[in-house]
């Protein structure tokens, strides 16, 4: 079975978010990048588990500049067989999805896996767009995935519960928590990753549909007001009369 896993980079989760150039650019100075957690922990690991039990090949794809190769090597170290990088800045979800769909069209993939969302732009956009561009079914927010021949049985989050669905390959999926357990790459994996193929392809022409014009930080919190643990009546009073939330 052939798996394509969409891998994006994200700033380390402890990064202090700041902007430069008159609040028009994310300040990358000193920022450590990681593989977007949903892509790594859930989409990639579940694809690897299925490959290990059913056979096949796991390819990762990333739309991003050469600097992204360190996170791509991490995905290879965890166990992906090969990687593709589309050599372009991923500034717009539609542009990104378009590049991935163009590459995937001729690849004969049984399944394209994305993460639920990137933790920097949080759009939850790219997976659904790939599905539409390729005319494929899209199972979003999957928390469990089992294969039986060409049929997948998938648990997915739905409003107020879980829905169990069946879909035949090929399809696109976005992975949420529960799909798999995080894997830590071992030394052998890290060594092997250095020599695994990382193909660089040039982007196809496509217009961005959106741009981030500026950014802002939330207003600073005012100081915390302390309430004595033995005086919960006061807290209730504050929540009612001052904060007006109950």
């Amino acid at each position: 079975m052939k798996f394509l896993v969409c891998i994006s980079k994200a700033p380390d989760t402890t990064t202090k978010i700041e902007f430069t150039d008159g609040n028009t650019k994310f300040n990358e100075a000193g920022v450590q990048y990681i593989v977007n957690p949903y892509d790594e922990w859930y989409a990639l690991v579940r694809a690897l588990e299925l490959k290990e039990s059913l056979g096949g090949e796991v390819t990762t794809i990333t739309v991003g500049p050469a600097a992204d190769e360190s996170i791509i090597r991490k995905a290879l170290a965890i166990g992906a067989d090969k990687a593709v990088r589309v050599n372009a800045e991923a500034n717009d979800a539609y542009f990104t999805a378009f590049q991935i769909a163009e590459y995937a069209k001729s690849g004969g993939f049984d399944m394209i896996l994305c993460g639920k969302e990137t933790i920097n732009y949080n759009g939850s956009q790219v997976g659904g767009m790939i599905a539409e561009l390729m005319g494929l079914p899209y199972v979003s927010l999957a928390t469990k995935l089992e294969m039986n021949g060409a049929t997948a049985t998938i648990d997915r989050e739905m409003k107020g519960g879980v829905e169990v669905v069946e879909v035949n390959t090929p399809f696109v999926l976005s992975a949420a928590k529960g799909m798999a357990e995080q894997r830590i790459p071992n030394m052998r994996g890290i060594m092997a990753a250095r020599t695994k193929p990382l193909e660089v392809v040039e982007p196809v022409a496509c217009d961005d549909l959106t741009t981030f014009q500026s950014y802002e930080l939330p207003p600073a919190k005012s100081d915390c007001k302390y309430v004595d643990p033995d005086n919960m009546a006061e807290l209730v009073d504050l929540l009612h009369n001052e904060a007006k939330v109950i």
Partner: peptide, 24 residues
Amino acid sequence: PLDLTGRAVAPRVSAKLKAGLASG
């Protein structure tokens, strides 16, 4: 709404209509 259904439908609509999506 950016609920569970909106997360799946909005990007598809955006791609189908080539209409930019502001998410969230």
